[in-house]
Design a protein around this nucleic acid. Structure first.
Lengths: 223, 223
DNA sequence: TACGTATGAGAACAGTGTTAATACAAAATC
DNA sequence: GATTTTGTATTAACACTGTTCTCATACGTA
């Protein structure tokens, strides 16, 4: 089968200009996309999704509202992009925490702590991701895999190891992971919902009791 | 000290009419209030808060939208009234579950199960109450005490008993209650967020593992 | 030069929560 | 019984919202 076009060693100046120009325009477009995303993110995270209008976002970056629609299908799509960024950060945080040295059990602790920490440091991200718009959790858009899966798999992997090495009781890793996930989510969302009641000191107490519960339960076996 | 006005044995007919008429009108007003609340509740619970407009609510009961404002200050106030109803039902469910016979531990189990059950049977109530509009959780309006407190106190009371009778490890009842509350909330909200993954069968598995974790922990102590 | 295309803006649409002005009936007062 | 006051519901309007249509302008291409 003959090659249709040999790799040209030289391009005409016209070709080069066309190529460069095209690249420049694409770059500009991407930059504007990022600008929109950044402005929208800052505003959403400060005033909430419903509290910000497309016109306000546009004004912040000096464009008309309609321009946003050339980059994002609609307001929901814009939010999804922001939430997706949140998931990337979340995944990074959990991934980093899972790489701590030690046995599976201490790595599990590290991941759980990282989970809660992320929520407390990025409460509005967390709200959008896990509380208000959890419909994004399992949604696939444009060939991106459901964003939450990755983080959950980090957890599940460690749990599997912990079971295999005998540090955790025998059982279905997925079920155990889900339970741990639920505990982390419960504490985090409660702490976000009622920050007054969850001072730093208080939260540490709760985390400690939770860890104790996970490890050896709450029942006093001596009686 | 002389009484300013002696109890009149007889009222004039005019007085009686005035009184009855006033009562009738008040009753009618209350009835309309309830009608609005019911219509709004049904619509919110079906289409979500943002998905329903004041005009749609009004249309459902055959009134103009502005009439609603004579009964509720604004849309948010209307939602609060509905969420408050939700809390009343929630409190009833937990209260009933706490009255089951048995030692504090089995009553604790009963309350936790009732918590999750309520969320699964009334997912949109639960979302409005604990996930989307948790700002209502601790809000006081018009001399009503913060609605969530009551339910939490049911839980805390049982935990206190369980600690006192030695069924639970020694510790601060409030902290322990908070942890248990967080676990219940975590499971419930995850199940609501991803009902596909939480079939009835799956949920039972998770509940069982959770109970085991609460009771005797997840760590295998034999190694 | 002319042509097609990508990028932006303005006007407009249907709808939102909410308020002001207004009609009307019932109750209270004379 | 006539008149004033009060309570209720409606219509019109305001300032917004997300979104689409139409149009202008600049740019790469021929």
């Amino acid at each position: 089968m003959p090659q249709k076009r040999r790799a040209p060693v030289r391009q005409s100046t016209a070709e080069r200009i066309r190529h460069v120009s095209r690249a420049r325009r694409e770059k500009a477009k991407e930059e504007l996309s990022r600008n929109i995303l950044q402005a929208a993110g800052a505003l959403f995270l400060k005033h909430g999704y419903e509290g910000i209008s497309m016109r306000q976002i546009a004004e912040k970056i000096g464009y008309s509202a309609t321009t946003i629609y050339r980059h994002y299908e609609n307001k929901d799509d814009l939010l999804f992009a922001i939430v997706y960024e949140g998931f990337v950060k979340f995944n990074q945080a959990l991934g980093k925490a899972s790489k701590v040295s030690g046995d599976p059990l201490s790595r599990l602790k590290s991941v759980c702590a990282a989970y809660v920490m992320f929520g407390l440091k990025n409460p509005i991200y967390y709200q959008l991701m896990f509380m208000q718009r959890f419909d994004f959790l399992f949604e696939k858009r444009s060939a991106q895999q459901a964003p939450m899966i990755a983080s959950f798999e980090v957890m599940q992997q460690i749990v599997t190891e912990a079971i295999q090495t005998g540090r955790l009781k025998r059982g279905d890793p997925e079920t155990t992971s889900t339970v741990l996930w639920a505990v982390g989510h419960g504490i985090t969302s409660l702490a976000i919902a009622d920050p007054k009641r969850f001072s730093k000191r208080r939260l540490e107490e709760i985390m400690q009791v939770t860890m104790q519960m996970i490890l050896s339960g709450l029942v006093d076996a001596r009686r």
